[in-house]
């Protein structure tokens, strides 16, 4: 157990009724790295995120964040410590403009503690910070996009808005639930550098993905889940070459394609 690991997952198990969605999953995430989690549908990826971030209670197992046990804490306490997440199904606050969407995370206790913008908390203060964050994440400041009602945004911007919501909290780790899925090729092309920049800014990322090609480009380490159990863990090249992974993804064309490129 190295001292620079930021998140330690130890034997996380989740049973829905009699079905084991997760069975003793353990791994470490180190400070500043990008860890990918892959696995076929129903392998328990999203359940794992929900367990880590406290949205559902795990049956057994422990999660440590910087050495502190966060398993069993309520979701908002975990987010307050800097463990943020995005949602696979994006549901922004539809009736609000994009930059107003960020008022909510900016109003949170954590953002108020960590924000460098506490200039008396005047009206409009948070609006400015919100627009700054949106610009950072790829909303063009001078265009009308940040001011549009969130329900009219295309998927690419909604995914960015999810990331922006995490960034507003000044996170230590962002757990992304399929941030690439549903995006067009050009949207992905602009998302990848964004992820890389987040890493350079010192944010640790745990990414759950279906799009293996893009994930393998950015990830430092990849963990493969199948039927709720960890199959293998290693650097992307190792995973691509592994026989077990081929078995898990048997028939999946994309893997074949990625593998042949490797």
């Amino acid at each position: 157990m190295s001292d620079h690991s930021i998140l330690q997952i130890q034997g996380v198990t989740k049973a829905f009724g009699g079905i084991l969605a997760l069975n003793g999953v353990s791994f470490d995430v180190h400070e500043g790295e990008i860890v990918g989690i892959i696995g076929p549908n129903g392998s328990g990826k999203t359940t794992l995120i929900n367990c880590i971030t406290g949205f559902i209670k795990m049956t057994s197992g422990k999660v440590f964040f910087r050495g502190r046990n966060i398993s069993g804490k309520p979701a908002h306490k975990i987010a307050d410590m800097g463990v943020t997440r995005t949602f696979q199904i994006m549901r922004p606050y539809y009736s609000l403009p994009s930059y107003k969407n960020l008022i909510i995370p900016l109003f949170s206790p954590r953002a108020r503690r960590t924000g460098g913008w506490r200039g008396g908390g005047k009206l409009g203060d948070r609006d400015t910070v919100g627009i700054d964050i949106l610009e950072e994440i790829g909303f063009e400041r001078d265009s009308f996009v940040p001011y549009k009602i969130a329900s009219t945004l295309p998927t690419g911007y909604l995914k960015r808005l999810e990331l922006a919501r995490c960034l507003a909290l000044k996170p230590e780790i962002i757990i992304c639930d399929e941030i690439f899925s549903g995006l067009s090729m050009s949207e992905i092309a602009s998302m990848v550098p964004l992820i890389e920049r987040l890493q350079m800014d010192g944010i640790t990322l745990l990414m759950i993905e279906h799009r293996l090609r893009e994930l393998f480009r950015v990830a430092n380490r990849v963990i493969v889940l199948n039927f709720g159990e960890k199959v293998i863990e290693g650097i992307p090249e190792q995973i691509m070459a592994d026989e077990q992974v081929r078995e898990v993804y048997f028939g999946s064309e994309e893997v074949e394609e990625v593998m042949s490129h490797a």
Binding site: H76, T84, Y93, S95, L96, I104, P105, F107
Partner: peptide, 25 residues
Amino acid sequence: NLDIGLVFRAVKDNDQAVRASGMSI
């Protein structure tokens, strides 16, 4: 229309995202 009012509306729209933003609904 104040910031806290937006938080109330957010709780109504999407309480999960509010929890993920580190606030107790």
